[in-house]
């Protein structure tokens, strides 16, 4: 994938005036999350990992954001969102049920689990879930579409876009305290913001993006 903000790494601002101590602590803790599951069982973990790769495909030329581990961590902490669609069970149960049901749907399809499907098959199954077409008895009373939108893509994408790698990818300025921003108008960039590569000016952007601290 062609980078829009070549050479930009929001973490290079870590020691600048744009980051304060609380933010450094919080991001450090987030970056330390990874490795084996601490809440989900092995089968659920494998399914989740496969789902994450379909919901948020990541380029192979950089270390991936450990999405499954981040979701698992959310489940471990069991921190809710402050609301729950009444059709959903609580956070942990919803995920356990949803992953098991998704695997069961895959089993019913061709006898192997979700991880055994091809990417296209996996996408098809996820699309069916989004269209509320999955009706396996394992889902119990939980409509698959509610699980899909409230839990599955919600939790996976929030984990991804809470990660510095994603911030760098979309050209977000990142943490900003005490230093905020000065140039507020259109097409204006403070020197501590990422520069998009204009056609033919890849080098210039790369150079500027190395000095955003």
């Amino acid at each position: 994938m062609k980078l829009i903000y070549p050479g930009y790494d929001v973490l290079s601002k870590r020691h600048s005036q744009s980051w304060d101590e609380p933010t450094r602590q919080v991001i450090d803790a987030r970056l330390a999350i990874g490795g084996a599951p601490r809440f989900l069982n092995e089968a659920q973990w494998q399914t989740l990992d496969a789902v994450c790769q379909r919901i948020l495909p990541q380029p192979i030329d950089r270390p991936p954001v450990p999405l499954a581990a981040l979701v698992d961590n959310k489940l471990l902490n069991d921190r809710g969102d402050g609301y729950r669609d009444a059709r959903l069970p609580p956070l942990r149960q919803a995920w356990q049920l949803g992953l098991t049901a998704l695997d069961a749907e895959a089993q019913a399809l061709d006898g192997r689990g979700f991880t055994g499907l091809t990417a296209a098959q996996q996408d098809a199954l996820l699309s069916a879930m989004q269209r509320n077409e999955l009706k396996h008895s394992v889902w119990k009373s939980m409509p698959c579409v509610v699980f899909f939108s409230h839990r599955l893509i919600h939790d996976i994408t929030s984990a991804y876009y809470a990660h510095p790698t994603a911030w760098s990818e979309i050209g977000f300025g990142g943490p900003a305290n005490p230093r905020g921003y000065v140039r507020m108008g259109p097409d204006s960039r403070d020197p501590w913001e990422p520069m998009a590569a204009k056609p033919g000016a890849q080098r210039k952007a790369e150079k500027r993006n190395r000095h955003v601290g």
């Binding site: 980051w19 304060d20 609380p22 933010t23 602590q25 919080v26 991001i27 987030r30 921190r79 809710g80 969102d81 402050g82 929030s158 809470a162 990142g174 943490p175 900003a176 305290n177």
Partner: peptide
């Protein structure tokens, strides 16, 4: 207060 959406959920009624 960190400059971080996820962490600052501590302010919400969760």
């Amino acid at each position: 207060f960190a400059s971080d959406e996820a962490h600052q959920e501590k302010l919400f009624w969760t």
